[in-house]
Nucleic acid binder design. Structure first.
Lengths: 186, 186
DNA sequence: TCGCAAAAAGAATGGCGCTTCTGCTTGTAG
DNA sequence: CTACAAGCAGAAGCGCCATTCTTTTTGCGA
């Protein structure tokens, strides 16, 4: 038996395609982006794309996962901090880390999630995961900075985490709506 | 010269089509809804639809306007109240008034707004208008209920209005993500 | 270095969905 | 009540786009 692409190389191609797809989606939207657009952006051909992704829906899912995962990553960094930031500080940092292209694709996935169950599950899962991180971070803040009694800190933190998450998502929306076409002109 | 449809009748047809469109969009999404779907839902034919709307984009815009206007209407009622509700009460009432189908179409329009300038303007305009209403309502609340000094009340109310709006929009998103397909089974 | 299977390119295909076009139908003004 | 323009239905047209198929190229193991 002989040669496949090594796994690392295969992952590289998948990432290359997914990143090109995210750029296209950010520019033209999930549905208005054709496979031809992605071939142009990635420098690969249609045949190649279909060797790495079952179909377009599969690619959209990959793009959604990528964007959401990148956001969760940023959050994870703050959550692990020794001196956890309070709600206002936390929100400010999250907002500062928003990338316009990812915000647009993120909001697009929300729209898609309202009708596509697979995308919906991805979005809900990522949202829950981020809220949980926020929850951990704020619990630590309550205990370490605010000297809140440890027992009951989690219960106190829950509604705060919910609010921070909501305000963050709203800001994501505002960013996505701000300069939708100007961005691509640069 | 002779007969057109009377204006009232013409508006009726437009509304009939737009409402059918909103139902379809809520079920299948903006792009996955075909004109054929709308003909089936409205009981009219393709030719008829094109007699009332220039094209599908025009129809999507009408649907977006309808959904957003209906939301602004609900808000307007509370804003005009003699004893204006405070932020928590206001938010609770707004959330209680959310309709699942409209929430879904609303979130879909957000996604569309990220790439379509016309839809974007509609969404931004409606959002600004709603926030202004919230602002008025909360200013009145500060003055009448909290006995805040009238001067500076508007400045105080602004960030609160922003927060209430954000939390409301987040809740709209959560509603849209909750039960996307179950709703249609009923 | 060599061979072979996988990967990539790029053209071909097939279907779907917007839009338009052709007659019938209907409602309104005189 | 009549006539005629607009409304309306339904059938085609037309283009676009996801997907597949064929051929060429390339990377990996021996």
């Amino acid at each position: 038996m002989v040669p496949r692409l090594t796994d690392a190389r295969k992952e590289l191609r998948r990432a290359q395609i997914a990143e090109a797809a995210v750029r296209c989606f950010g520019r033209n939207g999930l549905e208005r982006t054709s496979i031809a657009d992605i071939t142009a952006e990635s420098g690969l051909s249609a045949g190649s794309i279909y060797a790495h992704y079952r179909n377009k829906a599969d690619l959209v899912q990959a793009a959604a996962r990528e964007v959401l995962a990148k956001r969760a990553e940023v959050l994870g960094a703050y959550a692990a901090s020794d001196t956890p930031p309070g709600p206002d500080e936390l929100l400010a940092r999250l907002i500062a880390a928003i990338d316009p292209v990812e915000a647009r694709v993120g909001v697009q996935t929300w729209g898609e999630a309202t009708t596509d169950p697979v995308i919906r599950d991805i979005v809900v899962d990522m949202t829950d995961r981020m809220r949980a991180m926020l929850h951990d971070c704020l619990t630590a803040w309550l205990v370490k900075v605010e000297h809140h009694e440890a027992a009951g800190a989690r219960e106190h933190a829950a509604p705060i985490a919910h609010r921070v998450m909501s305000l963050y998502q709203a800001e994501l929306l505002y960013t996505a709506l701000r300069s939708p076409t100007e961005e691509t002109a640069r």
